[in-house]
Write a protein that binds this DNA or RNA. Sequence first.
DNA 1: ATGAAAGCGCTAACAC
DNA 2: GTGTTAGCGCTTTCAT
Lengths: 345, 345
Amino acid sequence: MPRKRVTIGDVAARAGVSKSAVSFVFNDRPGVSAAAKERILAAAADLGWQPSARARALSRSRTQAVGLVIRREPELLSTDPFFPQFMAGVEIGLTARDYSLVLHVVPDEKTERAAYERFARESRVDGVFLTDVRVGDSRPREIAALGLDLVVIAPEGADAGGDVVISMDDGAGVRRAVHHLHSLGHHRIAHVMGAPGYVHTEARRRAWQETLAELGLPIGPVVTADFTGAGGARATHELLDLPQPPSAILYGNDLMAIAGISAATDRGIRVPEDLSVVGFDDVPLAPYVVPPLTTVRQNVVSWGTAAAQTLVALVERKQAPTVQLPPVEFVVRGSTGPTRNRRPA
Amino acid sequence: MPRKRVTIGDVAARAGVSKSAVSFVFNDRPGVSAAAKERILAAAADLGWQPSARARALSRSRTQAVGLVIRREPELLSTDPFFPQFMAGVEIGLTARDYSLVLHVVPDEKTERAAYERFARESRVDGVFLTDVRVGDSRPREIAALGLDLVVIAPEGADAGGDVVISMDDGAGVRRAVHHLHSLGHHRIAHVMGAPGYVHTEARRRAWQETLAELGLPIGPVVTADFTGAGGARATHELLDLPQPPSAILYGNDLMAIAGISAATDRGIRVPEDLSVVGFDDVPLAPYVVPPLTTVRQNVVSWGTAAAQTLVALVERKQAPTVQLPPVEFVVRGSTGPTRNRRPA
DNA sequence: ATGAAAGCGCTAACAC
DNA sequence: GTGTTAGCGCTTTCAT
């Protein structure tokens, strides 16, 4: 059980120097002799002392912490493979620089706004990440107005309005998926969109459409859903009810795709014999559904790390390191196969 | 864009009072006239002022923040429905008292230990949650030695060594599952355990075993796995390779159960006709696999809220509110059915 | 190279 | 009731 809190004064006394000398050593600043430095470090180690983040935050006017606000409906919260991985990546970038992550999980827009306000007003964090960007999103401006540094995570090509962006190439994955289906002979390729309004939803739809056009395929039917299982099932029934149902469906995420397989199976439609299905995310369950899901995998952890490094650099007004983000992967499993209905391409 | 940071002094000046008056008002302490209070609140609102968490933390020697360390192997990270829901629940309990959550995601034990040390040494948080408790876990003692307040989240009956515990009744869910299978006529009911060493893994196994004994059923075969899909599949093959394979398998979580269905299907064994499968967690995908998964659902969000309220009370040395935790639910779907092999009970 | 001292913005004794 | 003032533990300028 620790006695009274040991402070910089104790360390200074033990090392026979002034408090500023100790401070200098712990901030990698010149002006302390090698001998003194040695004694100081020894004293600190003996006493088990480490600068108090509280006191430091006050005197430096920086908390050495950044914030992340997660807005998610309960249903989607534990579904989304994004946040856990993103946070794990963020952590890697943050601990390397001794930063902490302050998290808020909020249910709606009002609470979300309040969370950013609190971050700024209470000076709890120096900067924040912004994810789940929507089309015409006003939050970047609002956050900047609060005086917080900001790094936006958005798909490539999204309108960022001058903000610092870590972009992920959603389009590349979709293009590979469409090419894969095309090479299997499909030419009626539908798309089930995620929740409308998100730049991700849009980016994926656009890539689907453009790739079909490039390949000279007809722009297949598209249904708007909401990233949930129920929504994916509903959309699938809608597509299969069409007079001319698609032979392949590309879904905005894995959850909808898996629900889609289930919906098709219920109708007696076999996957992949009668219908090919492609997801997006590669959730851990994807290899274990029946049939195993063909899907797009992105390296979310690496975005997290890149975003964290960039935000820290921004906060410290330093040059952000240029990070090389690994490319998307396309994972072919059992849910896609050749068409039977039509001649191969 | 905000000008210079507004401080308590500005508010005091504008309201024509002293700083302490302002401080008193913002800490709900008596000793300020109604009139003064009104002027102070008005002034604060005009200036958009709010006490700085930084300064407050220093002078109160409390940060008004609590910490959560998540240790997870990459593979399991986005698989586990627990943490997102738990965090959402924690948030509810925390924001109500204006506390923040500081999060660390770590890959291994060494880093985990370092995270708690940093929490304490840097005085970043006032208390922490401890999850994923292992049998004979030394962390409660270590954390207490660091001077951090602690709330442990563990299944009922786990040895807590005097710590404050929010307990969830894993056993109740398992008992209902076994009774359900028994009522369907199964009497060879196997169990696939999660990763060894965790109190959850143990609690679930024990409940399975005790319930079988109560029902006069033979203690079926049990295989230790690791909560992963691959592990679940492997365990399933092992059980089905037995000279006398079980007619039902109870898995330690949904991911293993779903992988188990997949493994069985691959061998031409139909679920639920030839084999009944029960999971644990009720992940969002559970209703959408084929066949839909029968499983145990716990209200993780409510534990999070209870844990947060308890930790805040602990930190503030107040009486913890007694929280009523909702009971487990058992969700019957399509992956369980009557035995064909043997006579019904 | 080293030390003294003035903040950082708030809380809480204490005196008025 | 209300104002004054001394911390909280560190950083950082400025003499020495």
